[in-house]
């Protein structure tokens, strides 16, 4: 087991190298870099800024040479610093990249984690119920509702909810964000906490609604498959009650594919919900990096993407390990 994990971790170094190279090249190949975006506007105004100065600043940032060799050089420069533990300073926020990520991760993790818990609480029992009463009223209703919700784009459902519950009904703060503007600056403790919670309800509801469908369908399909297995017939032939058959024999078997899906949800958990955070104007890691990406902030974009890549690799490894934990037939090899 230990040997297996070590081997997988060593292998993932190569994966991460490849990933980082691809991301770096893509960002560098974007038509507008950070300098163009922030200073380009100044040039047309007939100010002191001219092309030479811009080129000089670009050279300072290491963005001047956009040939293949230049990008490669830039990449290895970034890689060298990264390996030394220096992720650089965000152009946009003027802070160390790791600080930006760590400072903004908490809120994103909170939203995603709570949403995930709710998604599972709703999806798993509902999926089982639907499978047990296949083609029943509940099954059809749940399927239609879930499919409809899954089909909504995040920004659409998000804005719909804002319009309905915040603007029209005024149940929530229509100015969005994390804290009310009406809240006095110095407020802290429970008042502030509840105010924050109140602002997070809508985004969480949107996240849950959008994701619950896929988990529910997944659980339903798995349960159906297991329900038709021979060993379930054996369990019934033993005289076990239907509840025991379903919640012991069936559920334990549906957990095998479920944990692997859950383990691969790890990067999503820490990486933030980019679109939801942007729509609801929540300063989480998702929104921060979205803004950074739009501006061509290479250090933050690289740092964030590497963070997600590492989490993904770990998530996949975790799901493999979980597989061996829940399924006695699976043994992790060398």
């Amino acid at each position: 087991m230990v040997k297996y994990i070590v081997k997988r971790l060593l292998l993932s170094i190569f994966i991460l190298l490849g990933v980082s190279m691809i991301i770096y090249f893509i960002i560098r190949l974007m038509p507008m870099d950070y300098i163009d975006q922030t200073l380009g506007g100044l040039m047309s105004g007939g100010s002191a800024m001219n092309q030479e100065k811009i080129d000089a600043i670009k050279a300072l940032y290491g963005l001047d040479d956009n040939s293949f060799g230049g990008i490669l050089k830039g990449y290895f420069g970034w890689l060298g610093r990264f390996l030394k533990g220096d992720m650089g300073t965000s152009y946009m926020y003027n802070e160390k990249v790791e600080d930006v990520i760590i400072d903004n991760m908490g809120i994103s993790f909170g939203i995603s984690f709570v949403s995930l818990i709710f998604e599972l609480i709703i999806a798993i029992p509902l999926g089982i119920k639907c499978a047990v009463n296949q083609y029943g009223k509940l099954d059809y209703t749940a399927t239609v509702v879930c499919m409809t919700l899954m089909a909504f784009p995040t920004f659409f459902l998000g804005n719909l909810f804002i319009m309905l519950f915040a603007d029209k009904l005024q149940w929530f703060d229509p100015s969005l964000g994390l804290v009310s503007t009406s809240l006095p600056v110095g407020t802290s403790g429970w008042v502030r906490f509840w105010d924050m919670m109140w602002h997070l309800v809508l985004p969480m509801v949107v996240l849950v609604l959008l994701n619950v469908g896929s988990y529910m369908r997944y659980q339903r399909t798995n349960t159906l498959e297991v329900l038709n297995a021979d060993y379930i017939r054996t369990a019934r032939a033993k005289g076990l009650s239907e509840n025991k058959v379903i919640y012991k024999h069936v559920f334990r078997n549906t957990m095998i594919p479920l944990v692997t899906v859950l383990a691969s949800a790890l990067p999503m958990l820490f990486g933030g919900a980019m679109i939801t955070e942007t729509v609801f104007n929540i300063p989480g890691i998702g929104k921060k990096t979205y803004d950074a990406l739009m501006k061509g902030d290479i250090p933050l974009a690289m740092g964030y993407n590497m963070f997600i890549a590492i989490l993904t690799v770990l998530g996949i490894l975790l799901s493999d390990i979980m597989y061996a934990v829940v399924d006695p037939r699976v043994k992790l090899g060398k």
Partner: peptide, 27 residues
Amino acid sequence: TQAMRMIRGREISMIFQEPMTSLNPVF
């Protein structure tokens, strides 16, 4: 079915055709 459960396994028991799949793999 409720009453039948008292008979299944206690009064009548069944051996199935497929021993490979008739036992629950996770227990």
